[in-house]
Structure formats: structure tokens, C-alpha cells
Amino acid sequence: MLPLLVLFLALAALGALLFWPRSGLLDRWRQARQLADRVQMEDALKHIHAREARGPLGTPESLAGKLGVTVKQALDLVSGMEESGLVQSTGRGLRLSQTGRKLALRVIRAHRLLERYLVDELRMPLEEIHAHADRREHAITEEELDALEARLGYPQEDPHGDPIPTSAGALEPQETTALTEWPVGRPARIVHLEDEPPETLAKIVAAGLAPGMQIEVRRVSSQNLVIWDGEEERALPPVAASNVSVVPLPHPVEAPTRLTSLRPGESGRVIKLRCAGFSRRRLLDLGITPGAVIECAFPGPLEEPIAYRVRGALIALRREQANEIEIEAITAAAE
């Protein structure tokens, strides 16, 4: 009797483990399969969209290379997407339909908002965010995305400088020039850092370049482009420089004075905050707004953080935050 009961219970448990709705193994496997299919399709849409914007149109072959599948699998994928009315094969390559473009833009929006979130709120290094966003972009729901966008304060650009599509699906392209094509000595503003391949992006980030920066190319050699940002010179190999896009700057490059340059007892007036997201909101709340007078009070026992006096209150900041605050020095005579 007892062995029978045990056997029955074990079978029931096994059955539940396998067939329980939603959390059972079978359903989980099915969900995982569906997710994997969707991920592949969304990645394909992204690829076709990118090729429509830049370079030759996508083909089943380029798709196979991008997704890491065989050409046969890529062809299956394409015909599946054609059946659902997402893409059209033309003589020169693949084009997105209206629905397909909408879907692709949705994924791109998710990707870029996630990147913004990873940088602004989680403070991840720039070269790591692309991979993270690639994984998460497929799982996030529309509502979560809207909430995220609101929380981030409706950003217009991702951390690489690319525009984020609106929830309605609009995406305005921008006229930019690759840094390698840019004339020596002409002031420019960085608007975009290409995020693939990550090793190249890492090189760009290591050289200290970021979207929004004012630069000018000083010298060009076969090994390096020497770039000046108003403060110091930075060297970048041409391979990496071709992944940096710039637009013209109407005025000469200005060297920013940062809050960190103040020594205890010295004061400055805030000109602008370079940070975004929560840290920007927090600094503003504490009264560190453009125009506010800020005085360096004293450093901590380990040299960091540093206490600053602003609007009568004493606020401690780390070096990173202080570096993101641009000031103009107030001379003793001006006071």
C-alpha cells in the first residue's frame, strides 16, 4: 500500500512539475522557444532597418552573418517575415514594410532607452551597455518602456548620441560626418559613437571622448588622429575615429572649468551641469543650478568626497560629480 502511495505521489509531483500551467517545465520550454523566435525576428528587423539607413540593403546572407545562423535558416526567417507582412524582398535587398518598420523602431526605442537607463541610473560603463540592452530589449513591455521613458525625463538621445524614436515611432535622421573625414582645425561637436564592435567603442571611451563634447582635430598621421578638447590632447587610431560622428560647432572650442579645480576657500559660479538622469535632478534640487555661487569648503580625511558650500548649505560631492559641474571662477576682485 505505502509504496503505491509513494509512487502515486511521485508521479503526481512529476506531472505537476512538467505540466503545471505557466511555471511547469513544458510551458516554460515553450515560452523560451517563443521568446527565442521573437528575439531572432526582432534582431533581424533591427538589422534590415540599420541597412536601410546606412549602407547597402540587407540580404539573407548579411542577415545570416549578423545573427550567426546558416543562410538556409536566414531564408526561412525572411520568408516567415514576408508572410507576416513585415518585410519585402526587392531586387537589391530586403526592405521593411510599414508594420515592420514600426516593430523595428519599437525595438530600437527599447534598446536606446535601456542604454540611457543603464548609463544614467545604473552608471554602467559605456562599452558594456550595448550587450545588456541587446538582451533586455526583447523582454520589456510597452508599459514598462513608457514608464522608463517618463522616469528618465523623456531623453532625446541615447548615450552614444543616437536619437531615441518616440512612442509614436518617429525617428529623425541627422546629417553627420565621420571624424576621419573632418578637416583639421575646424571646431566640431561629437554627436554619435558607434557601439559596435565593442572593442572599438572601448578604445574611443578610453580616449575620453563622449557625445556632446567640443573638439577639434589637431594633427593626422597614419597611426593616430590627435584631438584637442580645449584642455588636453587625445590620440585616437583612425579605425576608431571612423566610428565617431561629428557636426559643425559654430564657435571655437572652449575649455571648461570644472568644480574640481576649486581649492578650499575659492568660489565659482555654476555654468552648466553635464550629467543627466537622477544625478542631475538631485544636484538641481540641492540648489546647484546654473548661476548659483559655489564655494569649496573642505575635503574629507581621505581627500574625497569634498564638501562645497552652496546657497548656505554644505553639500558633499565625489570627484565624479564635481567634474560634471562646469563653473566660471570668481576672482576676489569681482566680489
Binding site: D285, L286, G287, V310, R311, G312, A313
Partner: peptide
Amino acid sequence: ATVLERNLN
């Protein structure tokens, strides 16, 4: 009262 400006925010 000692940090009025910030508190007025």
C-alpha cells in the same frame, strides 16, 4: 532659518 534660500525651493 539658517539655510533659508535652499529651504525656499
